[in-house]
Design a protein around this nucleic acid. Structure first.
Lengths: 178, 178
DNA sequence: ATCGACATGTAATTTGTTACATGATTAA
DNA sequence: TTAATCATGTAACAAATTACATGTCGAT
């Protein structure tokens, strides 16, 4: 019962929604989970081969053309199901260079510290705007199809970004006041 | 002007506050930046050698004992300063397996989805409690010493965790209601 | 026929964790 | 003197990004 690699988790999940090629998996990631669970071509293609080897996915069609569409096998379905229920600790990783610089901002002059905070806030605002423009349409489409959770995951991300932006704006005010 | 590795950034920063050994850097990370910028022994020790090679740090004392304390060189100070002001894009990485499972929760039964949300919320609450118990005392100590920003970085983390926990609690209510 | 978008893949490099090995110092 | 903790280090592995190479398809 070797556990699934991070990339395997997202591949199996998207294939369960419908059969896809590696290319399609990457497109789906790009318009939905990228923010909290990325995957690049360089990981997806080799991982698909491994999953095929392991009997978790199989080729559905080579369509005459050069397009390899995969679908889940029964074993793949079971493995995915296990993961969606399992009890292991979740991976949680947060890495934030702006916050690192904030932490050490006593080492710089106030202007540099303030500029850093401003950039942090702006980044959050831009990310939130990007979510609404590029990701929300897809999430809303999913809702039409009866999938409610992608939209909830989007809202989670927006709430997080906006809480951060609000706090940063307050700190900006505090640092400007003097 | 080869750019600093992630681990180099935190090593130089902590050395600027005061000279330390690799062991001390690791301790400092563990009680302060771990949440958003980790570093393990396996990275710190080799990186210190590289930084020494590059002339950014130097041995301050071998203290007779087996304890290698490093301090910044003038070149190290300059390099650190450059980084604290530079214009490059900040690294921002967020990876959240609970959120990935939430995204795909249409594929499971409602009980498994609810259980996942509950665990996500609990994890946030435990993390926030840990911050207050284990990290805040050190941040407050820093304030006494005139370093105000570590405490602000802590507050940022708490605000983020609490915003997430609140949203998750609301979703829990919604999912329970039916 | 050729150009751009679609599609698959490999290789090199970077980053990070974990497990392991080893030695020095201090307190019981 | 022996156990625990302090302290330094290496090796093996896992994960991820990026750049590169190659080929297919459809429209002009």
């Amino acid at each position: 019962m070797s556990s699934l690699s991070p990339t395997a988790k997202i591949i199996l999940s998207f294939l369960r929604l419908r059969p896809r090629s590696g290319y399609d998996v990457r497109q789906a990631v790009g318009v939905s989970t990228q923010f909290f669970w990325g995957a690049s071509f360089g990981q997806i293609y080799p991982e698909l081969r491994r999953l095929e080897q392991a009997g978790l996915v199989e080729l559905e069609s080579e369509g005459g053309r050069r397009r390899r569409t995969y679908r889940l096998t029964a074993a793949g379905e079971r493995t995915l199901d296990d993961w969606l229920r399992d009890d292991e600790d979740f991976l949680f990783q947060y890495r934030d260079e702006g916050l690192l610089r904030l932490f050490f901002s006593d080492l710089t002059d106030p202007e540099a510290a303030l500029e850093n905070v401003r950039r942090m806030r702006q980044w959050r605002e831009e990310a939130a705007a990007f979510f609404r423009a590029e990701i929300q349409p897809h999430a809303d489409e999913d809702v039409e199809l009866g999938y409610k959770f992608p939209r909830r995951a989007l809202d989670f991300g927006l709430v997080m970004l906006e809480a951060q932006a609000k706090w940063l704006a307050e700190l900006e005010g505090e640092l400007t006041a003097r």
